[in-house]
Design a protein around this nucleic acid. Structure first.
Lengths: 356, 356
DNA sequence: TTGAAAGCGCTAACAA
DNA sequence: TTGTTAGCGCTTTCAA
């Protein structure tokens, strides 16, 4: 193959083409392309011109084969239902951060089978993983560690001990939201949440109970309703909560979708929100702002979580012992679904909470 | 390196390890792994056992270097605002389809610079591209063709001629929705849409005008409002539309977010939906079902679009001349934001439309 | 049916 | 500063 001006289509120019054209060795081209300082200015110029003329771009595949680095990172979410909104933004931010470092993002939403590594890891397509949330099983993190594959947990701090992780300040967010409800005069405050096996749900529940206890209120079991994840689940759970004689005057939800279900339940029960029932969600998904009334919720900075996850991953890739956990602050977004407790449902006998 | 039982960590077993263990050549292992029929049953068994014992998995990188196929496909969306919901579902479905074929999905949301190829193409990280929507410039498709990189357009049929593409049946969907409004007795029907440079918006507008014309109604310029993409834009545009003396009794929007803005505009103007104003969206994003009233809209089957795009891409990769365009049917989802025209605004002088 | 040799495009290690 | 050699893990010839 004497390379007779093979400009036609396809075959991308290789490092050899550039070397030949510039009249240097492949190694020199490699050095120039990677920005090595051990190249004379003249040579560099020659090479750069050839690169330009040929529109040369190094093959990441060939690089990966030698250098052991693929330039890819996977975001693994399993079939996380939260992907609907949450991981969407996380992915977007992560992709941007990765691009800045010359990396690409591989999206893995397929469920990973118990005891197996994700295909992208087995095929060695990635240098590291962003592990999205509660769908990720502990057995997976064990395997990853055994293989020495760096990974960062997202939205699931504290579960995989000794692993880097980023999540929202779930506890603080919940605590603050409930404090806010208390300040509005609410005393009977319900909690509707998904499985507590989910770290972020457990944390939010903890924030809820702590805020109540601090106000001298003992959380009652009948204020707690379990739900799955969808709007319908939230609706069903809320109706259960509202059925009792001494129904809550406010309900705090572990997620916005559930809270939107709560809004619907109130409507069906003929309760006006926020006059007769205050509703608070968590996450601040897009839909939270378009309900009627718009939802008061705890905003999670999804972009920042995505960015931070990438940062932590790169720190880990440089130094495997550089493990860190980051809690990204939340923000209470007060909209129309919360109000001072209505006169009708107020309980004069309950002592006022101090310090609110 | 005499490979003294290097089980420790890291170093993944290679084809040589398997060959040695099975007592065959690398070539035989390669054949077995790829399922070649030219291997005796006995040899195959031996190899398979070694594969099992070593937990061997071929390196996609090394494969790509020889075989020219990376096993990756990129979904390029640019900074498409529609990503919020639309491309999210498309991505999910695409990823699933790709996984079934042993492929991975690389997500590219970074804007691609004019006159340049996406980095994943230059680095030869992918075998093909899914080009998401209106953000993709024509210059890009030209470059791609020159390079011989297979690609499929999503949500932008008809623009890149001679290219494979998938989109919703935008024209039909819009046409059907407007027919529905006509059937409800509406005569003054507004249209709020984003830039018509966007293929899907142009098609939806065409469906709108055709339905009107067929009903003997000439679309008036004052019924047409341009908006950008967000809820706020939709609100602003709708308020403009509602300002005139003979305001529309129904408005059709090129997207749900705009329609939600329309709902807000009506509320601010003190118009009740659907009694005084009917509102119809397009896409059926998640938020469309939680507004009050819930939004009547044209549902786009995003999963099917994602699946189909992958299908078309694989056909293209096998046979570059196998170009196809697929329009995925839409479905009118009637919810609470539309109603028969109110008595108050009815115009007895307008003739009834027949055949509705 | 099986294997040996060569090479994909690049870089690490060494030598000049 | 520059180049040579070797090899990453696999597959494609071609030969046995």
């Amino acid at each position: 193959m004497t390379a007779h001006q093979r400009e036609s289509t396809s075959r991308r120019p290789t490092i050899s083409d550039v070397a030949r054209r510039a009249g240097v060795s492949k190694m020199t081209v490699s050095r120039v392309v990677r920005g090595s300082p051990h190249v004379s200015a003249a040579t560099r110029a020659k090479v750069l011109r050839a690169v330009e003329e040929l529109d040369y771009y190094p093959s990441s595949t060939a690089r990966a084969l030698t250098g052991k680095l693929t330039g890819n990172v996977a975001l693994v979410t399993g079939h996380a239902p939260r992907f609907d909104d949450f991981f969407n933004y996380v992915a977007r931010a992560a992709e941007r951060s990765l691009a800045e470092r010359g990396y690409s993002l591989i999206l893995v939403m397929q469920p990973i089978r118990e005891g197996e590594l994700p295909v992208v890891v087995r095929e060695q397509k990635v240098d590291g993983l962003l592990l999205g949330g509660p769908e990720v099983r502990p057995s997976l993190t064990d395997l990853l560690r055994k293989r020495g594959v760096p990974f960062v947990m997202i939205a699931d701090c504290g579960r995989a001990i000794g692993a880097s992780s980023v999540c929202a300040a779930d506890y603080d967010g919940a605590y603050g939201a409930v404090r806010y409800l208390l300040k509005l005069g609410h005393r009977r405050i319900g909690f509707v949440g998904t499985r507590e096996a989910y770290y972020h749900v457990a944390e939010r529940y903890r924030g809820y109970t702590d805020a109540l206890r601090e106000a001298g209120i003992t959380p009652r079991p009948e204020w707690r309703a379990k739900a799955d994840y969808t709007i319908e689940d939230g609706c069903r759970a809320t109706r259960g909560l509202l059925a009792g004689s001494k129904r809550p005057t406010a309900v705090f939800y572990s997620g916005d979708l559930l809270a939107i279900g709560g809004l619907m339940a109130a409507e069906r029960e003929g309760l006006s929100v926020p006059d007769e029932l205050s509703v608070v969600g968590f996450d601040d998904i897009l839909s939270a702002s378009v309900t009627s009334p718009p939802l008061t919720t705890v905003r999670v900075d999804k972009e920042r979580i995505g960015r931070t996850a990438v940062e932590l991953l790169f720190r880990l890739m440089e130094d495997p012992s550089d493990v860190a956990t980051v809690h990204v602050p939340t923000e209470l977004i007060v909209r129309g679904s919360t109000a001072r407790i209505g006169k009708a449902v107020q309980e004069p006998e309950t002592p006022t909470v101090e310090g609110l």
